[in-house]
Write a protein that binds this DNA or RNA. Structure first.
Lengths: 214, 214
DNA sequence: CGTGGCGTTGACCGGGATCAAGTAGAGTGG
DNA sequence: CCACTCTACTTGATCCCGGTCAACGCCACG
């Protein structure tokens, strides 16, 4: 979903990037703020999220190195519709919107690639919409874990290679953290997951995937 | 959201379109089928929807004349991720994907406009995702009605200019039709809506919008 | 005149949110 | 090194929204 877009597509643009460090928990850009440019993840993991009310949010997706951030700001009102927050210390690149747009208008091959990327994100987004409408919390947690494993891979010991607070997992699955906690326990009892501290392994892929389809 | 994209952006492409009629209820393209081309609505209303299980679906959006259909098929596996069905008798245009892609690669201005359109759809999609996760059915029905009015306008008598089955309204709001029915009654009792047969008026915009924000 | 789709309504109940409270670990300052 | 705070995790009790099931009315249509 979030491939190393820039290196593949347009190495030249890399030279215009300004890099800066971000600390764990640091806000990269905020929902509602005016759009000034577009961001790229050089290293570290980032969550992209949308507020609901003070203490509730939905995590729309996660991003790792190579991913684009803030491209949703290209639309009509030039205001970021979502926020991005670093989950770890890392480095992000920044390109101001004027330069980025100029590049797009000139390089139609790049624009076309970006278009396909957007189409993929739209698919994913609409699939998730449907799941939020019709799938149980258990299925959504199962799916969330599968997505996380596919995106971030596994450690040598087989654990999903990301440490996520229950709160963030809940926000990603679209549920409360108490419910997510209970559901994870169920999944462990049913031998589909194994826990080790904060790490999670998927023990039975087949059974977990079945949950995903109803 | 769905402006008259083609006429505005690239009149030339219109000449390559093949038009054909569709009858009310007719499937234009189906989720899971291979992508062969891209569609445009000439006249009539169309619903874009995603199946859940045999008798459940989510309506992702509605489209009227000028709108693009099937563009989500541009992504990775060349398979439509959603279906489109005509809500009325109408006419849709069709352009095979090869020609469309060739056009995009040449005309970067057009591609750029399309990119912005995709960015807008992504915003909208992610907003709806969040709403499905956190908003009550009542709020979602209210929002759905506001969206429909904004998109399709009102008749001279002030009714929302689209006739939709309760079933479709429910699928759009992401709820069952019984629940939607009850919620609409509540909204009528609370003087926010007026019904006349299948037609609906928004009687108190302010109050309805308030529902939308929690 | 049946038959099937849609609208309408009531009864039921279960998933999941909410509230409340207790525990454990990780930093922080004296 | 210990007390204190703060945050995240854990667990139980409760409640209610909204999904499910069931039944009936209505109207269009073959």
């Amino acid at each position: 979903m979030c491939k190393n877009v820039l290196k593949e597509w347009l190495p030249a643009i890399l030279e215009h990037k300004k890099n800066f460090k971000v600390k764990k928990g640091e806000l990269i850009f905020k929902e509602g703020h005016p759009v000034t440019g577009i961001f790229f993840v050089n290293s570290g993991y980032v969550k992209v999220h949308k507020r609901w009310d003070a203490d509730k949010e939905l995590i729309v997706r996660f991003a790792k190195e190579g991913a684009i951030l803030g491209h949703r700001g290209m639309g009509k009102p030039p205001i970021y519709p979502i926020s991005a927050t670093a989950l770890q210390n890392g480095v992000v690149g920044y390109i101001d919107m004027d330069f980025f747009e100029a590049t797009l208008k000139v390089n139609s091959e790049f624009t076309y690639k970006l278009l396909q990327f957007f189409a993929d994100e739209l698919r994913e987004s609409e699939r998730k919409m449907r799941n939020l409408a019709h799938m149980s919390v258990k299925g959504r947690v199962a799916e969330s874990l599968i997505i996380l494993r596919d995106q971030f891979g596994e450690t040598e010991e087989g654990y999903i290679n990301i440490e996520l607070s229950r709160q963030d997992l809940a926000s990603f699955a679209g549920a409360t953290y108490e419910t997510v906690f209970r559901v994870i326990n169920e999944l462990v009892n049913e031998k589909m997951l194994i826990l080790s501290g904060k790490r999670i392994t998927i023990a039975n892929n087949e059974k977990l995937i079945k949950l995903t389809q109803d």
